[in-house]
Design a protein around this nucleic acid. Sequence first.
DNA 1: ATTAGCACTCTCAAGAGATGAGTGCTAAAA
DNA 2: TTTTAGCACTCATCTCTTGAGAGTGCTAAT
Lengths: 343, 343
Amino acid sequence: MLTNRQLLILQVTVDDFIQTAQPVGSRQLSKKEEVPFSPATIRNEMADLEELGYLEKTHTSSGRIPSEKGYRFYVDHLLTPQLASSDDMLQIQSVFKERMVETEQVIQKTAMILSELTSYTSILLGPDVRKHRVKRFSIVPLTSDSAVAIIITDSGHVENRLFELPQGLTASEIEKMVNILNEQLTGVHLHELQNVLEKETSVLLKQHMGRYGELMASFGAAISGPQEEKVFYGGKSKLLHHPEFSDLQKARGLITMMDQVNQISTLFSPNQAGIHIRIGSENNLLEMEDCSVITASYTIGEEQMGSIAIIGPTRMDYRRVVTLLDVMSSDLSRELTRILRGS
Amino acid sequence: MLTNRQLLILQVTVDDFIQTAQPVGSRQLSKKEEVPFSPATIRNEMADLEELGYLEKTHTSSGRIPSEKGYRFYVDHLLTPQLASSDDMLQIQSVFKERMVETEQVIQKTAMILSELTSYTSILLGPDVRKHRVKRFSIVPLTSDSAVAIIITDSGHVENRLFELPQGLTASEIEKMVNILNEQLTGVHLHELQNVLEKETSVLLKQHMGRYGELMASFGAAISGPQEEKVFYGGKSKLLHHPEFSDLQKARGLITMMDQVNQISTLFSPNQAGIHIRIGSENNLLEMEDCSVITASYTIGEEQMGSIAIIGPTRMDYRRVVTLLDVMSSDLSRELTRILRGS
DNA sequence: ATTAGCACTCTCAAGAGATGAGTGCTAAAA
DNA sequence: TTTTAGCACTCATCTCTTGAGAGTGCTAAT
């Protein structure tokens, strides 16, 4: 168990390092009002904190910097909540002032403002399409052998896929098919779609349609295709402005990683409420060794819909980011709910 | 007018610099078989070429590097066409082997392969939506006061927008509206849509609809909203691996620029056939001072539809990129035409 | 338990050669 | 007249040294 003095020194050390990005020395610390001890005392305490694994040195005679364990402790025990500054609040309001009607626009703008306010990179995962329900089906033939299938969800999201049409299908057959689909599938979750289609709807369709097999092969494949969450970035280049990435090697790694969408999802905790912080190697990604990720999620109505993440250096301003993310996620939830449930 | 010997030396100098990224010296050049002159002779010629503005020195006693004017001359007069290697051809075929049905997939994959083959960054502008024609309109009410408008184009592209519904509009009124829209607007170019809607269709709608004014305010705004070309990137980080961007300052600038979609469009020449090369400052963008952009375009059927661009350092392998772009743009055109016009 | 003092360690920046690649110029060779 | 050899000179780069500065650990005094 740490003594109060050790807690104080750890806190001030982390705070200082977050601000300056420079290793903090004992003399420097003792000058601060909050720390009424002599450099020698501080040195002793720091040596103990280092032994316990909370602090590190960059070289034998440098000041100390927080270790991952140090950040973890700081985040878990020393992070006092804080109200968002009125300045920040104003900026956040501005996102929602325009009363946009497209969810994508709102999310994109949220991403931008977040990265603007934090000077880190933000990633927003778009609404999880698979949780939406079918509102309406539609099939529009394009040529004699291709058509586009359209699914409108209750949230106003529109999915569309091209698929091949078997030869000789008549317009009235297609119409019949659309009717059956609408009757049978309205209200079904998108992620259950394939299932229901195969098990239940197929029986009905088989009765009413010629060339059932061919049709379902291409239609089924089309609508059960990948429904990925869309990824929105804010300020991809912001990260490069922090001194920890003045190493080109690391900068390259990060940029490369951000271009690989599949890697991104590993950064998000399984969609759960509240704010989560992953520090450095906790991200299980080599490129993210020097980064921390703070995630939150937003809801539409009552349901978890998507996630918000801020990526910054491990030496990031956790307090500020947590505060902003907290405000932002609830504001975003409110706004999206307004759009989709009516104002 | 340049002598033959000057042409030779300029060509070899540019070729060599493109390969090695090192200033090329006279001694080094004279070792090559193609250049049967002594270093001293080459020095004299190089001095002349420098005076004419085709070559530069990085410092007083360094070898020469091509100036922008040098690259321009090289590209305009010294670039002998070349057949794509069979290895490259194989790679390119692989994009189209899978017979994908979604245009976006094809374009995205094209972007990826291009950047893979060139080790530069590729940008593909998606099909210009405004050139597509309306195939079908659809309106799906979501709540009592909002609906989603859907436009399906003849190319299978689907545009959708949320808009607000005036209170008390009945389902049959909406149906009537959709019918009118389909009758009147089918076959209209998307970029003429707003025009036709206001001038012609509005008369009809006014006769049959209650609350015409309110409805058109929000519906009109929705469907005439921005229809931007989608931008696809391949290998955003590839650029960072070239030595000219080991300067962090420049790297940052580039990455930042690529995130600003509006800047991207300035890189493309007005959509015209053939291959265009812009070197360094010809791009009129500060961040692109050290980059060249090579653009081509692809067609669907007969019509110019979108553009392909490769961004590399000014010291890029022009010959190779031009060749690849040539092959790729015609292959992409063929494939997209197949998808949309039926195989 | 705390602090002052001191020797020690390490980084960083500036300066001094040394090296090497390359140039321009001049005079000799072709 | 054109080409080439030779030579002095320039500049970037690498390495080594040096000194300053910041910080530490340890010991002894408070």
